[in-house]
Design a protein around this nucleic acid. Structure first.
Lengths: 334, 334
DNA sequence: CTGTTAGCGCTTTCAT
DNA sequence: ATGAAAGCGCTAACAG
């Protein structure tokens, strides 16, 4: 039924070892024998069984990727970066959505490890002690992707979310804004939520502006929640002249809310966000945003993982990719 | 170093078979023995090796997914549908981007098959004879996802792209438009490109309108190409009063092009598209579009694949999911 | 309900 | 340059 390496060996009149060598491109094979083997492979339609190979060699050339949600544009972009580099190094990826839920994350990490992945890329919510525990039992390298652990024990690649937020708010400050609101993500989320909120507060502080909790609303990263938050701000007696949104999508919701209430962006309210997804240039006015290099985060973390898997020594196990502000039309001077 | 089923057996004072039984939830184990085994597993920190299991049982509980581009929102949505259902049936997915390139598609199909996936979900460009050939050598079920083969030999789940386009254009016709342009995808793409173009032509025909090739531009599905196509139409001496776009993203590019030239949507030009991605409600005016149920296409195709993998008999191996037009604000009467 | 025993298809020493 | 043979860790009859 299925043709095995043994069948090929017999057909070619050589040993299994020799077939294995030609299949694996081992140079120690006489060209003539190699040819014979290839012909036998062709004739029989032989297809190597990667599972058997994995068992024998203890390598599967597949890596596990745990991701919050592949249907989120930001993460999908990271995933593409990961897969491109994985492909380049002949790895395949097993993709698991875990929705930033701790239990689900732990569960998929374990099944990935059971599947004997050669390495693991983890993109999730907070990295808790339980995560650390699970990582410890893995005897394969792990890199955190678009996240970091508090203690900085695990290799990771990410941007500095706090600084990104800080820079975004600075851009608003520089235009003379002083009443600056924030549409935040949940503070439970360490990077996108908490870190960006911290950056916002630090920027305000640096300008001597006292923090006003009425100017902060927590959204769920979605368009609608951006709209709702903005509605709240607009109804304030003393409404903000500028808004910092933790994500593009909420920013766009805010923009439309402003426009729908007859006001103008940026003339009446300026808006800036962090992300710079493709959508940022697909709104009017186009959105000014701090760019997170998502594709690169994916690509670099996969590259780092390949090095770790090859046991190469790496100098920077914690890489922080630069962010930059891309100025479009949603911010103006007050 | 690594603890195996044999170690657990010794530790628990039972045979490997018994350990295997408790790990696999085989009911034929005395509760007491089961308990002993679980304790040994716990004590040793045993983690079953899925690769070894795969070799022995000839099942990997993983399915291969070839997708054009995971960073494309439409496909990412399908992928999420696939993964959710896969997860529900305890399958994992190996994800491969193939960019609708035939060579790449054939290559990943083969590596997926080498990895002994239990089934394959194929999302790609045209299904050529070479594809059919590759599918034939697979001895696992395959389902086409958001595509179909001409001959209808392979199980598939998709919408009727031709009818979707037809319906979209009908909606324009119903509003009295007669000069209707189309922003198409490449005609090489059977479903999104060619089929939608055919639907456009058929709708025109049904209304007795002669086809004018000046009213069709080929885009690349991206925002910018929608803008460019629209610019071309706007420069026509006798510009169209309505535009049908093959995708949301190009439609949004067109909307902005119209607005940037001082005209209004839908007052001056109506626009309709096929997709109904989340972006459709994130533009102003909100985009009227024929909804493709992408998540469902993914979910249903994965569900179908599970049935095929379990060798259940399926009555409809070719499922065509319904599409519906969701009316928003981008279309008005002429 | 439990144990014995062959493999699953391949890689990898170790010889030759 | 090539072959022989011993596993890799597990499942699946089969026997009892």
């Amino acid at each position: 039924m299925t043709v095995t390496i043994y069948d090929v060996a017999r057909e070619a009149g050589v040993s299994m070892a020799t077939v294995s060598r030609v299949v694996n491109n081992n140079p120690n094979v006489k060209p003539q024998t190699r040819k014979k083997v290839f012909e036998a492979i062709e004739r029989l339609g032989y297809r190597p069984n990667a599972v058997a190979r994995g068992l024998a060699s203890k390598k599967t050339t597949t890596v596990g990727v745990v991701i919050p949600d592949i249907s989120n544009a930001i993460f999908a972009e990271v995933a593409r970066g990961i897969e491109d580099i994985a492909n380049m190094y002949h790895y395949n990826i097993i993709l698991c959505n875990a929705d930033k839920k701790k239990d689900k994350e732990i569960r998929v990490i374990n099944t990935l490890l059971e599947k004997q992945v050669d390495g693991l890329l983890f993109m999730g919510g907070a990295v808790t002690d339980e995560h650390l525990q699970a990582f410890k039992t893995a005897n394969v390298p792990i890199v955190l992707c678009a996240t970091t652990d508090e203690q900085g024990l695990i290799p990771s690649v990410d941007i500095d979310h706090e600084a990104a937020a800080y820079d975004a708010v600075q851009a608003l400050l520089k235009q003379g804004h002083t009443r600056i609101a924030m549409i935040s993500g949940t503070l439970q989320d360490p990077s996108i939520g908490f870190a960006r909120f911290q950056g916002y507060k630090r920027a305000l502080e640096s300008a001597g502006i006292t923090y006003d909790e009425n100017l902060v609303r927590i959204g769920n990263y979605r368009y609608e929640s951006g709209s709702e938050a903005m509605k709240y701000f607009l109804d304030l007696s003393d409404r903000p002249s500028a808004v910092f949104s933790a994500t593009d999508e909420m920013a766009i919701g805010a923009i439309h809310q402003i426009q729908d209430s007859g006001l103008k962006v940026p003339q009446d309210v300026s808006i800036i966000s962090v992300d710079n997804s493709r959508m940022a240039s697909m709104v009017r006015p186009q959105l000014t945003a701090v760019a997170q290099p998502m594709y690169d985060i994916g690509a670099v973390s996969m590259r780092l993982l390949t090095k770790l898997m090859k046991k190469e020594t790496v100098d920077h196990a914690k890489v922080v990719l630069p962010h930059e502000i891309v100025t479009r039309q949603s911010v103006s001077a007050i």
